[in-house]
Structure formats: structure tokens, C-alpha cells
């Protein structure tokens, strides 16, 4: 699997660390809504299909990326910095941009 880091270009998946489901929303820090915290900490969508994910380019620039990945085909549909800004389109196999 190749992930196209907006900084570093298409890199092998071994350079990245999966950092969890990107669909979760963290409650406001002072929130006492335990259900919301529980959902944030424990609930995962685990879809068979397109999935929003957070990956860190831990073996590279260390940026966190928001990635839409198809869990059936491993196709990466889009890649963007988690903190916003630059967004790159998904890449097809073999590094075709």
C-alpha cells in the first residue's frame, strides 16, 4: 500500500503509523457527557468500504494525515493534513498521480 504524504510524496505504508478512526469527534474538554466520551474512546465504525482514518507519517515528516481509504480494495481516495491546509487527491496504483 502506498500513501501519498502531501509533504513527502508516495511512500510505502511501513513508514506510517495508523492512529485510529478519523470519524471520532472529541467532546469539549470540560464535557461531563460520559456517553459522548465513551463513544469517542471506544466506538469504531469499522466499515467494509470507504473509511476515514488518521495516519501519522512517523517514519517521515511526522505529520498526521486524514485519509479516506477503502477497506476492501485498499484504494486511497484522498489524503490531507489532519491540521488542515493542503489536500492531495487519492492516487491510483503504482504511484500514478
Amino acid at each position: 500500500m502506498l500513501i501519498t504524504c502531501p509533504y513527502c510524496g508516495p511512500r510505502d505504508v511501513i513508514e506510517f503509523t495508523y492512529q485510529g478512526d478519523g470519524n471520532r469527534t472529541r467532546p469539549q474538554p470540560a464535557s461531563q457527557d460520559l456517553d459522548a466520551w465513551n463513544a469517542y474512546v471506544y466506538d469504531r465504525l469499522n466499515p467494509a468500504g470507504d473509511h476515514n482514518e488518521i495516519w501519522q507519517h512517523s517514519g517521515g515528516c511526522r505529520a498526521h494525515l486524514r485519509i479516506v481509504r477503502n477497506t476492501l480494495t485498499h484504494e486511497i481516495l484522498s489524503t490531507a493534513f489532519a491540521r488542515g491546509g493542503h489536500k492531495s487527491a487519492g492516487h491510483k496504483a503504482g504511484g500514478n498521480q
Partner: peptide
């Protein structure tokens, strides 16, 4: 380190 980077990048940019 990864913990801090995650919160700075993803939760509290």
C-alpha cells in the same frame, strides 16, 4: 512524543 504530536496535529491544531 507521538501522543503530543497527535493532539497538536489532530485535536488542537
Amino acid at each position: 512524543m507521538q501522543h503530543l504530536e497527535y493532539f497538536l496535529d489532530v485535536i488542537w491544531p
